[in-house]
């Protein structure tokens, strides 16, 4: 058992004994449903109760909504490994596996296409450290993927292909509406997810540990 010398060394985080998110989500959904009539009357209750003017404009344009949907799928494929790594978090691999099973076409992506940053890359991911890390991880990506067990490899390839598609669609949408903050956020998050996949592949080793 751990010993400490001061109260400041006590762990600040104590994870709950079970995953509380499903119940929180249910309560949020219930409040959203309750808020719908209020939103019609102009009374917001939750964040989604009354969409902002920008959000309404966003949802009114099908191509923007489609890009956002693709990005959401990408985020769902590899959603926050470090954030979901708690003992009660749903296994990421299971999520990704479920998505693979449901997706037509399977995992025949070419990760090399990720190695082609566009002008938008520079605009949204301008931190040189990020670029250096990304370039270094991409350099060894093919070899790392080849060394993975088949199931892990399939998940990684599917994730990378979905992320690539999300980036492509979001960049196309931003080309039509460069000032759309929501699209910019989605693109940034997609880049973060890509980095997380690359990092996980890099650290997984040939056993596919953690994927």
């Amino acid at each position: 058992m751990d010993k400490v010398k001061s109260l400041g060394e006590l762990p600040r985080a104590i994870e709950p004994a079970r995953d509380l998110w499903p119940q929180i989500e249910a309560r949020i959904r219930a409040s959203q449903a309750d808020a719908a009539p209020a939103a019609d009357a102009g009374e917001g209750v939750g964040p989604a109760a009354l969409p902002s003017r920008g959000a309404r404009r966003f949802m009114a344009q099908p191509w923007l909504a489609a890009a956002a949907m693709v990005a959401s799928v990408a985020l769902g494929v590899w959603i926050g490994r470090d954030l979901l790594s708690g003992p009660r978090a749903p296994p990421v691999a299971a999520r990704a596996g479920a998505t693979v099973a449901a997706a037509p076409g399977g995992a025949q992506a070419n990760p090399a296409v990720l190695d082609a940053p566009t002008a938008l890359d520079a605009a949204f991911v301008s931190d040189p450290r990020f670029e250096r890390q990304r370039a270094a991880l991409l350099q060894s990506l093919q070899a790392k993927i080849a060394a993975l067990p088949p199931a892990s490899r399939a998940r990684v390839l599917f994730s990378l292909e979905t992320i690539r598609k999300a980036k492509e669609d979001l960049e196309a949408a931003l080309g039509k509406d460069p000032g759309n903050a929501l699209l910019q956020e989605l693109l940034i998050n997609t880049y973060q997810d890509e980095m997380r996949v690359l990092t996980d592949v890099h650290t997984a080793g040939d056993t596919g540990r953690g994927i």
Partner: peptide
């Protein structure tokens, strides 16, 4: 939530 649950619960 995943990021902050531990500290909040603690």
């Amino acid at each position: 939530y995943r990021e902050h649950a531990g500290r909040v619960h603690g």
